[in-house]
Design a protein around this nucleic acid. Structure first.
Lengths: 224, 224
DNA sequence: GCTGATTTTCACCGTTTTGTCATAATGTTA
DNA sequence: TAACATTATGACAAAACGGTGAAAATCAGC
């Protein structure tokens, strides 16, 4: 589960955030001021960081800047609707989002969840592909079709996973041979066709997610 | 500059957003309800889309879902702090951000700017050519005309992509034959003409983006 | 080394694509 | 405007292409 850092000098706020966050299933670490936040963030194990702006020892902006040097976790700022309010919109510090005080804990949680999701999207290049009843889990090397685990040959998996990892990208037969079969494969282009055929059969009603690009190759395409 | 779509049934809101957005240098298109928003979004030329939730004919959630089918522009929702407020947090619709009414236009602009920035990072813009309702995606080997995927022959794609990659550059028939057909093609110059003809037909109302340079060759020209 | 599973090659075949050419249309120049 | 040069277009036969099934080759476990 996700681990988040909450930095605020008001005990009450930390307490409320912790309560809600743990209810959401997050692991929570607290910091009482900017310095402490920076120190704890050094470990770089957080999935998201919530910083109050007005804090003793080191303010939220400065803390954010320091933290961004070592971590790429999303940072959400807590701001009072006051003088620093405008500063937020510079977003030069790499702030990912902000919540205005007084805030609803529910909203903060929502924003944390969104920030986490966003991070995953850009990083984990969609390790799991879902489309209707089709689930392709690349790391688990597993394909589930309408609730039934699909039984495929190794090459089919390799080919499918490569296609999915390069979703919406046109791939020539040469490229596929090189990437899936290996650079040392000296065989017929048409081998790819045969495996595409088998893969399509294995995919059943989802066969048309693999699109033929005539004169070019193939492409895995997110269905419409 | 970025082009944004603002959909809200209240004239006053659209007016204010337009004013601020144009001040920011954005090109603004308005929609009075969800239906209109979806229709206008079909052109797929927007860099960001702002949707009110409560709208006649089609609500913001449904509109968002429809729009996400054809466009990958970030969607920012406008919500009243009320009953639909919680729904936002599902974020299953692919909502990128939201702003709670009554909002400060400044904040909305900031969020739009952030959404745009985020979008640029994840996509490789250079490979995608957009002009009005025409989207040419070279890596996906896909051409979308007013929301409809175009069906072209391999040579048409190759020729089009080469022209687009050399936008605003005059290309002789010899050059085109060498680059698109290959150096080992020993055929008639006029072959190019025929393929330009077919390509123009495939491009429909965008046919005149391909300009004939009499006595010289052809050129793909970004319309003004 | 036997056996069954997997991978690769290959040729057939219906379709699509392509290059050429004759003719029409359009632009250019005197 | 006439004469010429260049480009657009439609038609069509040849070539290219991809889906497929089957056979051959290879591999893996025993």
């Amino acid at each position: 589960m996700a681990k988040i850092l909450i930095a605020d000098d008001e005990d009450k706020i930390r307490e409320v955030v912790r309560e809600y966050a743990e209810f959401e299933g997050f692991e929570v670490v607290e910091a009482k001021d900017g310095m402490e936040a920076v120190e704890k963030a050094q470990s770089n194990t957080f999935d998201a960081i919530v910083l109050d702006i007005m804090m003793p020892r080191l303010d939220g902006f400065s803390a954010c800047k320091k933290i961004k040097e070592v971590s790429d976790a999303p940072v959400i700022m807590l701001s009072a609707r006051g003088e620093e309010y405008d500063k937020l919109f510079g977003f030069e510090l790499g702030i990912d989002d902000y919540v205005v005080k007084p805030f609803s804990p529910k909203e903060l949680m929502a924003r944390i969840r969104v920030a986490l999701k966003r991070g995953q999207k850009s990083q984990n290049r969609s390790d799991i592909f879902r489309y209707e009843g089709l689930v392709i889990n690349v790391t688990a090397r597993e394909v589930v079709i309408d609730g039934v685990k699909a039984q495929m040959t190794p090459k089919e998996y390799d080919l499918l996973f490569y296609l999915v990892r390069n979703i919406n990208i046109a791939l020539s037969r040469e490229k596929l041979l090189e990437e899936v079969w290996g650079y040392d494969f000296y065989g017929d282009d048409r081998t790819v066709d045969t495996h595409i055929k088998m893969l399509r059969n294995s995919l059943g009603k989802y066969r048309n997610l693999i699109v033929t690009l005539r004169g070019m190759g193939y492409k895995f395409e997110k269905g419409n």
